[in-house]
């Protein structure tokens, strides 16, 4: 009897919550789910030109929605999603964002509207499951982090065509990388705080990918952020951050070597110590550490070039060192 009361109480609480969303079918805290089929004779989508079906869905201004289109048979249907407002304006599209071959759109509704979800195909036809759910709190926060980074970087992109000198362009590139670097600490803090939410995994992947991007930057600003992240960021990232920092410092070292700075040697020592430390403390990164150490020794400004001995295009063998005493440009090229 007691159990029955508990159940009915739960029912009482749950039912109004489902209604609160307005439209019963679109109850905002429920997952909206449709089993659909794309057939060859479905009308062609105006943009994608493949068969499509339209699913209308009411969204509330400011809320984040996750729309998934999952194929039932990856051999037959590679799904593709588009999203339009009620007036038919294309707002978002995606091919493999849900993990190949499934499509996912994460969308923040700018206004209350009945949106048109276009379920179509990158390739093929067949059965699919379409779900729409309100993003979790964590997912929404992650979307905000992504959006704020994206907006700032887009603004920078707009300045690029106006930058006339190499210096001006370099400044924009540096700033771009610095913004990426700035995002790392909030992202990794987020991943720690919401460790149980699937969004944490996405945030971690972003951190990893962004770190890899930053390896290409020689901006001292990026180096500074990486140093902070190394001190304050999560322990599990320590090794990756140190590796990225060593790459960044390597480029900085090359610049200072070219300027004939007195402190160039100090920088080099710092990189060597850093790599040694990572090698000793992160067994999983051993091969990457070795790579950077090799690069530092053999492929870095200030180091003697490695010997090359091979045939030329007329099958005659020669050596790079045959050209000692001359200034040499080595150009790795191909005609393709």
């Amino acid at each position: 009897m007691q159990r029955l009361i508990v159940w009915s109480l739960a029912g009482l609480i749950l039912v109004p919550a489902a209604w609160a969303g307005g439209d019963k079918k679109n109850g905002n805290d429920k997952v909206f789910k449709i089993e659909g089929t794309l057939a060859k004779d479905d009308p062609a989508d105006k943009l994608r030109k493949n068969p499509h079906k339209v699913h209308e869905y009411k969204m509330k201004a400011g809320a984040n929605y996750v729309i998934d289109m999952i194929t039932k048979n990856a051999q037959e249907l590679d799904p593709y999603l588009r999203l339009e407002d009620s007036a038919g304006k294309n707002l978002a599209e995606d091919d493999d964002g849900g993990g190949f071959p499934n499509a996912r759109i994460i969308f923040k509704a700018p206004k209350d509207d009945t949106y048109r979800i276009i379920a179509t195909a990158f390739k093929g036809v067949g059965d699919y499951t379409l779900t729409v759910r309100v993003a979790s709190e964590a997912q929404s926060i992650l979307e905000q982090l992504k959006e704020s980074l994206g907006t700032k970087q887009k603004e920078l992109f707009k300045q690029f065509p106006a930058a006339k000198t190499e210096e001006a362009r370099q400044k924009i590139t540096d700033r771009f990388y610095e913004l990426t670097a700035d995002s790392l600490l909030p992202l990794s803090e987020f991943a720690q705080k919401y460790a149980d939410d699937p969004a944490a995994k996405e945030a971690k992947n972003m951190v990893r990918n962004n770190l890899r991007q930053l390896e290409q930057s020689d901006s001292p600003g990026v180096g500074k952020v990486l140093r902070t992240l190394r001190e304050k960021g999560p322990k599990e990232m320590h090794g990756q951050v140190s590796l990225a920092l060593s790459q960044n410092l390597r480029s900085q070292y090359e610049r200072s070597y070219q300027r004939k700075d007195k402190d160039a040697g100090k920088l080099l020592k710092e990189i060597e110590d850093l790599l040694k430390h990572v090698g000793e403390n992160h067994a999983d990164l051993a091969s990457q550490v070795k790579d950077v150490q090799f690069t530092l020794k053999n492929l870095t400004v200030g180091r003697p070039a490695m010997e090359i001995e091979a045939e030329d295009l007329d099958t005659k063998t020669f050596k790079l060192s045959d050209y000692r005493g001359k200034v040499v440009v080595i150009d790795f090229w191909g005609h393709w």
Binding site: V301, A305, D331, F332, G334
Partner: peptide, 30 residues
């Protein structure tokens, strides 16, 4: 081709890749 031994030894990942050496065979620019 691009999987050959020289580009592998030099860790070349994108083409073209350029190195400038001085008369002593030291890398001075990349």
């Amino acid at each position: 081709g691009t999987g050959g031994p020289i580009s592998a030894a030099w860790h070349v990942q994108s083409w073209p890749t350029i190195y400038v050496l001085d008369g002593d065979g030291v890398i001075r620019y990349r």
